Simulated assay, not measured.
Amino acid sequence: MSQEVKIFALSTCIHCKKAKEYLDQCSVKYTPVHVDWLTGEERNNTLAELKKYNPAASFPTILVGDRVIVGFRKDELDQALGIA
Protein backbone atom coordinates (compact mmCIF):
# COMPACT_ATOMS: atom_id res chain seq x y z
CA MET A 1 0.00 0.00 0.00
CA SER A 2 1.54 3.29 -1.05
CA GLN A 3 -0.99 5.68 0.46
CA GLU A 4 0.07 7.64 3.49
CA VAL A 5 -1.99 6.87 6.60
CA LYS A 6 -2.23 9.33 9.46
CA ILE A 7 -4.40 9.11 12.56
CA PHE A 8 -5.30 12.05 14.77
CA ALA A 9 -5.95 10.53 18.18
CA LEU A 10 -6.17 11.06 21.90
CA SER A 11 -4.11 8.78 24.12
CA THR A 12 -7.15 8.20 26.37
CA CYS A 13 -9.68 7.47 23.59
CA ILE A 14 -10.83 3.83 23.39
CA HIS A 15 -11.96 4.23 19.75
CA CYS A 16 -8.54 5.66 18.85
CA LYS A 17 -6.86 2.71 20.58
CA LYS A 18 -9.02 0.21 18.70
CA ALA A 19 -8.30 1.94 15.38
CA LYS A 20 -4.54 1.83 15.98
CA GLU A 21 -4.73 -1.82 17.09
CA TYR A 22 -6.65 -2.67 13.91
CA LEU A 23 -4.10 -0.89 11.70
CA ASP A 24 -1.34 -2.78 13.53
CA GLN A 25 -3.15 -6.12 12.98
CA CYS A 26 -3.37 -5.30 9.27
CA SER A 27 0.35 -4.42 9.19
CA VAL A 28 -0.47 -0.91 7.99
CA LYS A 29 2.22 1.69 8.62
CA TYR A 30 0.72 4.91 9.92
CA THR A 31 1.68 8.15 11.60
CA PRO A 32 -0.09 8.62 14.93
CA VAL A 33 -0.65 12.17 16.16
CA HIS A 34 -1.69 12.20 19.82
CA VAL A 35 -3.17 15.65 20.09
CA ASP A 36 -3.40 15.51 23.89
CA TRP A 37 0.38 15.07 24.11
CA LEU A 38 1.04 18.31 22.23
CA THR A 39 1.30 21.76 23.76
CA GLY A 40 1.33 25.39 22.73
CA GLU A 41 1.73 26.31 19.09
CA GLU A 42 2.31 22.72 17.96
CA ARG A 43 -1.06 21.73 19.48
CA ASN A 44 -2.82 24.75 17.95
CA ASN A 45 -1.34 24.06 14.51
CA THR A 46 -2.27 20.38 14.72
CA LEU A 47 -5.86 21.18 15.72
CA ALA A 48 -6.09 23.66 12.83
CA GLU A 49 -4.87 20.93 10.44
CA LEU A 50 -7.34 18.43 11.92
CA LYS A 51 -10.25 20.85 11.47
CA LYS A 52 -9.47 21.11 7.74
CA TYR A 53 -10.35 17.40 7.47
CA ASN A 54 -12.93 17.16 10.26
CA PRO A 55 -14.48 20.47 11.37
CA ALA A 56 -15.93 18.77 14.46
CA ALA A 57 -12.38 17.83 15.54
CA SER A 58 -13.57 14.48 16.87
CA PHE A 59 -11.36 11.45 17.40
CA PRO A 60 -10.09 9.39 15.81
CA THR A 61 -9.80 11.14 12.48
CA ILE A 62 -7.97 8.89 10.04
CA LEU A 63 -6.48 10.03 6.75
CA VAL A 64 -5.85 7.38 4.10
CA GLY A 65 -4.38 9.16 1.13
CA ASP A 66 -7.00 11.83 0.36
CA ARG A 67 -9.82 9.99 2.17
CA VAL A 68 -11.00 11.10 5.59
CA ILE A 69 -12.56 8.60 7.97
CA VAL A 70 -14.05 10.01 11.16
CA GLY A 71 -14.29 7.46 13.95
CA PHE A 72 -13.21 3.84 13.91
CA ARG A 73 -15.19 2.53 10.98
CA LYS A 74 -13.65 -0.81 10.06
CA ASP A 75 -15.57 -1.21 6.79
CA GLU A 76 -14.54 2.26 5.57
CA LEU A 77 -10.95 1.65 6.63
CA ASP A 78 -10.85 -1.70 4.81
CA GLN A 79 -12.21 -0.07 1.65
CA ALA A 80 -9.80 2.89 1.83
CA LEU A 81 -6.85 0.57 2.48
CA GLY A 82 -7.87 -1.81 -0.29
CA ILE A 83 -8.19 -4.79 2.07
CA ALA A 84 -11.97 -5.13 1.83
Rank of each mutant, 00 (worst) to 15 (best):
F8P: 13
T61F: 05
S2W: 00
C26D: 02
E76V: 09
E49Y: 04
Y22T: 00
T46F: 10
V64A: 01
A80Y: 06
V68G: 07
P32T: 09
L81D: 04
E42L: 05
K17I: 08
H15G: 03
I69C: 15
T39M: 11
D24W: 02
D78P: 08
K18F: 06
L38P: 09
D36M: 07
R67M: 08
E76F: 11
P55R: 13
D66R: 00
S2Q: 06
A56H: 04
V28A: 01
K51N: 07
I7W: 03
C26T: 03
E4R: 01
Q25D: 06
I83M: 15
E41V: 02
V28K: 03
K74A: 02
K52N: 10
G40C: 09
G71R: 09
G40H: 13
F59K: 12
P60K: 08
L10V: 09
P60G: 08
R67L: 03
S58R: 12
N44V: 06
H34Q: 14
A84R: 15
G65L: 00
P32F: 05
L47T: 05
K6M: 07
D78F: 11
S2K: 03
C13F: 09
C13R: 04
F59M: 11
G82A: 07
A9T: 14
S2D: 04
V70M: 14
Y30M: 02
M1L: 00
L63H: 01
C13V: 12
F72D: 13
R73C: 02
N44L: 11
D24P: 01
S58Q: 14
T46N: 06
P55N: 11
A84F: 14
R67W: 01
P55C: 14
